[in-house]
Design a protein around this nucleic acid. Structure first.
Length: 803
DNA sequence: AGCACGCCGACT
DNA sequence: GTCGGCGTGCTC
């Protein structure tokens, strides 16, 4: 009998290896690597991934695979290998690496049930069980737990009267509809029509329909159109004239929309210059990474579209990654209207079932292009011709929980295996990428000017300290107010951008400044409008919003939100005639609200669009001629070495919203630190100078791209234990690495406590350390094996969030 | 993760 | 003497 090596769905150190199972004869040829199977594991049944088929095992008493869950593997050979690579490079469990590559719908759901053992009568059991299990009924274990039946069940199980059953279930079913199609030629249908008994009126109608419409038809449509009972169709089916079958259908989220087909636009001279090397790489099947550096509005998307066109012509497939927040309907529209049904879209707005359907389209090779957020990088294509990452600098490409991968790294890895180009596009490339381009690791392609040579908007930086000194205490500088009024008169549109500080909405006392914190974590609670409650995002603690301040008993304790509410109120006072649309977590919570608000703004139903992060991208409306940034520096003081870079990127991004069409644009940036280079240089929109300045800082402080980072976070209930354990780790690493490597710590984490566990960090900065991963793995092995009340250790290689 | 096995305290 | 607490170790 053949043997399968299986990675089981149990994410622990001890089970992070393959387990061997016998393949029952009947599945012998079906079970292949990459397939999900149900296997017995101890007393229960769980899901697992087959990684290998072999004929020998070191174990002598193997159990059998219970059942395969797929007819064809869900992970190709390439993806299995990619999963192993992910495991090694991000130091996670293999099961996590496999699961992250699949839609959530394919993750197993487990159910534990109780039923009567064979040959036992329900009446033999004690009273509560006897009727619950009567007639072979299955009792849900959770349900039994709630009713306090565990003790009884336990006793009966020992006696052998009941049986515990472990079920592995799919989360989402494929959606099917029943269709009917003619089973014989149309001529023959006509023949049969004549032979029908005179009273077979309904059958006659159905036959006439199929003679007229010789095609597959939805069962429901037939029955409702002719008011049929199923029997008429059944009769025809049994005569062999019609064929009924289940057909898999997709939940198409864009079903109701019609896409006007667009043709490739003529390229400018610059675009032509830039696309040529990409086309060549596609043509010759050469792996190369291009950094497409092009200012906002320089026509990067058209480059993507035409490169993909080339790939499709060559019979290959394309993956396009777009940050979640710019995966707007407009963006999707551009791809759908160029490539029509060949596009699958994957983003968080879809339901689990819809995501699964989009994934199936890729798996069944029914599409050629995938447009999606981070996880779309794992699209199960098998002949990739190009991978494009738009807004390459976006931090959302790094996943913050296991496996902590960066989509850019995965993209390059996959492109290497498929010998195809990667295009990283940005108006403000990440320092890492730009530095690589400078060193010719990546090939730099530049689009220096906007299409049609529109001027970049003029940017003015306003020193808010100056405003305060001259007696203006409002949040609008005099200049910004003046321009807002001007745009109102001219009936042009403005965008006001509020940079939210650190985390989201919190509750604060206006009198004493008290902020409501989580009692278990050193972090403020987040306000949730539903139920007027506050929640902790880290431990789940919940509390109602207090009516008086616990510190000073003031009644003026309230939700501070992202500040947009406050800005809106103030706007209402000073510009009462302006129509304002506010976009933040509160107003865009519902599905589709985001799109609806933007459409309203586009249609000119408002003069001012006010919002946070989420309006920084993708807005491309002709009538926007003014962009105001209310507070540019809120992000600058976060404990993050990338804060300058992020500030510069965000300001540049926002500025790009103005004057993208015929009308010239103006940008006002309000700040308390106008002298900071990231703000000053965002003002002059000088990426190159910013790059040089920031590189100097990074070099001095030993940060990327000069050094690589690895962050170790240790947590424990006892402060002293955390400190001493972190110290031990620091010592151990120091002893293992070269003296050129910097090992910092123990340092308190920026979030000093989560869920009553204190947190300390150790930061490693290194240039070349070939054995570091092995060393880190050793640390993980050590701590994941020791007792549960011991310290927890997590490691993030190339961290993006330093908390 | 779940679950069994196993060794100590408070009860019929 | 037993029921049940959760500490430890195993699952091919």
């Amino acid at each position: 009998m053949k043997i399968a090596s299986v990675i089981v769905d149990v994410p622990t150190k001890q089970t992070d290896k393959t387990f061997d199972y016998l393949i029952p004869e009947q599945w012998n040829h079906l079970v292949v690597p990459g397939m999900r199977v149900i296997v017995p594991f101890g007393p229960r049944n769980i899901q697992g991934f087959v990684t290998e088929i072999k004929s020998h095992s070191e174990f002598n008493s193997l159990r059998e695979i219970i059942e395969p869950m797929d007819l064809e593997p869900v992970l190709s050979k390439e993806l299995l290998e990619l999963g192993n690579w992910l495991t090694d490079t991000t130091l996670c469990f293999r099961i996590f690496a496999y699961q992250v590559m699949l839609p959530a719908a394919l993750k197993a759901k487990y159910e534990k049930k109780v039923k009567l053992a064979a040959g036992v009568k329900a009446s033999d059991l004690p009273s509560p069980l006897s009727h619950l299990l009567d007639g072979g009924a299955m009792l849900d274990w959770e349900e039994a737990l709630k009713q306090g039946l565990v003790g009884v069940l336990h006793r009966e199980a020992i006696k052998g009267n009941i049986e515990v059953i472990y079920l592995v279930k799919e989360r989402v079913k494929k959606k099917h509809i029943k269709v009917i199609r003619p089973a014989v030629a149309a001529v023959q249908l006509k023949e049969e029509l004549k032979q029908l008994p005179a009273n077979a009126e309904k059958q006659k109608q159905v036959l006439l329909y199929f003679i007229d419409q010789y095609q597959e038809t939805e069962y429901k449509k037939l029955t409702s159109q002719y008011q049929l009972s199923p029997s008429a169709i059944k009769a025809l089916e049994s005569k062999g004239l019609l064929d009924g079958m289940e057909m898999e259908v997709y939940r198409d989220p864009f079903d109701h929309r019609v896409f006007q087909k667009t043709e490739p636009l003529p390229l400018t001279e610059n675009q032509e210059k830039v696309i040529t090397p990409i086309r060549n790489a596609v043509e010759t099947g050469k792996h190369e990474v291009f950094l497409l550096y092009g200012v906002t509005g320089s026509g990067k998307t058209e480059i993507y579209l035409q490169s993909i066109q080339k790939v499709i012509e060559k019979g290959q497939e394309a993956i396009v990654l777009v940050p979640e927040i710019s995966l707007t309907p407009q963006m999707v529209h551009r791809f759908k209207s160029r490539f029509g049904d060949l596009v699958a879209v994957m983003h968080s707005g879809l339901s689990a079932g819809e995501k699964y359907d989009e994934w199936r389209k890729v798996q069944r090779k029914e599409v050629k292009v995938v447009v999606g957020a981070r996880s779309a990088i794992f699209a199960p294509f098998e002949n990739i011709g190009i991978i494009i990452i738009d807004e390459e600098h976006e931090t959302s490409y790094k996943q913050e929980d296991m496996p902590r991968y960066h989509a850019r790294d995965v993209a390059i890895r996959r492109a290497q295996t498929y010998n195809c180009p990667v295009v990283l596009g940005s108006a403000t490339p990440s320092l890492e990428s730009f530095a690589r381009a400078q060193k010719n690791v990546y090939q730099l392609l530049t689009l220096p000017s906007r299409m049609n040579n529109q001027a970049l908007p003029s940017v003015e930086i306003i020193d808010m300290r100056e405003e305060l000194r001259s007696g203006n205490r409002s949040m609008f500088s005099r200049k910004l107010l003046e321009l807002l009024k001007d745009r109102l008169e001219k009936q042009q549109q403005s965008v006001l951008f509020l940079n939210k500080r650190g985390h989201s909405s919190f509750v604060m006392c206006r009198d004493c400044g008290y902020v409501v914190n989580c009692p278990n974590c050193d972090i403020s609670l987040t306000y949730h409008r539903a139920g007027v409650r506050m929640k902790c995002h880290y431990c789940g603690y919940e509390a109602p919003v207090p009516s008086v301040c616990p510190e000073c008993s003031s009644e003026y304790i309230r939700y501070f939100g992202t500040g947009t509410q406050k800005v809106e109120d103030e706007l209402g006072k000073i510009l009462p005639e302006a129509r304002v649309i506010r976009m933040d977590v509160d107003t865009t919570g519902r599905k589709g609200a985001h799109e609806k608000l933007l459409t309203e703004f586009k249609e000119g139903k408002a003069d001012i669009l006010l919002g946070t992060q989420m309006i920084a991208k993708g807005l491309d409306f002709p009538n926007i001629t003014l962009v105001g940034v209310l507070s540019a520096d809120t992000m600058l003081h976060l404990p993050d070495f990338r804060s300058s870079e992020k500030t510069f990127q965000l300001l540049t991004q926002v500025s790009g919203r103005a004057g993208r069409h015929k009308l010239p644009g103006e940008v006002i940036i309000q700040t308390y630190t106008p002298e900071h280079y990231s703000i000053e240089l965002a003002g002059t929109q000088d990426y190159n100078l910013f790059y040089q300045r920031e590189m100097m800082v990074r070099k001095m402080r030993h940060y990327p791209p000069f050094y690589y980072l690895a962050m170790i976070t240790v947590s424990h209930e006892q402060l002293l234990t955390v400190v001493s354990e972190t110290e031990k780790i620091v010592q151990f690493i120091s002893s293992q690495v070269s003296n050129k490597t910097v090992v910092l710590g123990p340092t308190v984490s920026p979030i000093a406590r989560i869920n009553n566990r204190y947190r300390y960090q150790c930061l490693i900065k290194y240039k070349r350390e070939p054995n570091l991963y092995k060393t880190l793995k050793k640390i993980l092995d050590q701590y994941q094996t020791t007792a549960k009340n011991g310290p927890l250790v997590s490691i993030d290689v190339n961290p993006f969030i330093m908390m």
